[in-house]
Computed example of a mutant assay.
Amino acid sequence: MKRFPQTVFAMAVMLLFALACTEEQDFDQINDLQVTPTLASGLFYLESDEATINSAGSLNTFYYQETNFNAFNETYVADNLLEGTITYEIDNSTSKQLRVIIGFIDDSGNILDVETFDIEAGPTDTVVREVFYGPGGKRLQILTNTSSLRVSATNLSDANSVSPAENPKIILRSGAEFLFQLQ
């Protein structure tokens, strides 16, 4: 008879454990999941020394290049782009006033957007410009329709002066961050 109360007690404890540890599972949580990854990438890099700039002459283009930019040629990627930021950094240690123009070109050769940088003769502090695309910035269609980037750099100064800096050059770096909605 002593075992009967112990058995009832043990069964009651097991029943309480079973009820306390179970909860109805919600397997539909995946429908509420929102994934927004950010992709960061370098875009282009321009570097030119002062001798190259001088050899192009005054008021002449010393750098010109058009490169493919097919980051958004997949419809799924273009349709799920939420926003983007392109960051430009410019260092000029030359004695030249320069102009750098970056054109965003579509498949038909149309210019969608232009970023122009008028750069003072150096040495100068690093110039940083961030350009936003999406809410509060430029239209996202500029990025999603761009198929190439055109970069040109022009000497707006004379062709003789030389900077007192050691190894004078112009450096333009650019990078981008894009935010996507995956669901």
Rank of each mutant, 00 (worst) to 15 (best):
K2R: 12
R3H: 10
V8M: 06
M11F: 10
A12M: 13
A12F: 09
L15G: 15
L16P: 00
A18D: 13
T22C: 15
E23N: 14
E24C: 11
E24H: 12
D26I: 08
D28S: 15
I30G: 11
I30C: 09
D32M: 04
L33E: 11
L33I: 12
Q34V: 14
V35D: 09
T36V: 07
T36E: 15
P37N: 09
P37G: 10
L39A: 12
L39P: 02
L39F: 11
A40R: 08
S41E: 12
G42T: 10
E47H: 04
S48V: 12
A51C: 01
S55Q: 13
S55A: 15
S55R: 13
A56R: 07
F62I: 08
F62H: 03
F62E: 06
F62S: 07
Y63G: 07
E66C: 05
N68Y: 06
N70H: 10
N70D: 14
A71N: 09
A71E: 07
A71H: 03
E74Q: 13
T75Q: 14
Y76R: 13
Y76C: 02
V77M: 09
D79M: 01
N80V: 01
N80G: 06
L81W: 05
E83V: 00
T85D: 11
Y88I: 08
N92L: 09
T94G: 04
S95F: 02
L98A: 07
V100Y: 02
G103N: 14
F104D: 01
I111T: 15
V114Q: 15
V114A: 08
T116Q: 15
D118S: 12
I119P: 15
I119N: 11
I119W: 07
I119R: 05
A121H: 03
P123C: 08
P123M: 08
P123Y: 04
P123F: 06
T126D: 05
R129G: 03
G136E: 03
G136W: 04
G137H: 05
K138F: 11
K138Q: 09
R139H: 05
R139G: 02
L140T: 07
T144D: 07
T146V: 07
L149G: 07
L149I: 15
R150P: 02
V151P: 00
N155Y: 01
L156W: 04
D158Y: 05
S161K: 03
S163I: 02
S163H: 03
P164D: 13
E166M: 02
K169W: 00
I170C: 10
L172P: 05
L172I: 06
L172M: 14
R173D: 13
R173A: 10
S174G: 04
S174P: 00
G175S: 14
G175A: 13
A176E: 09
F180T: 12
F180V: 06
Q181E: 13
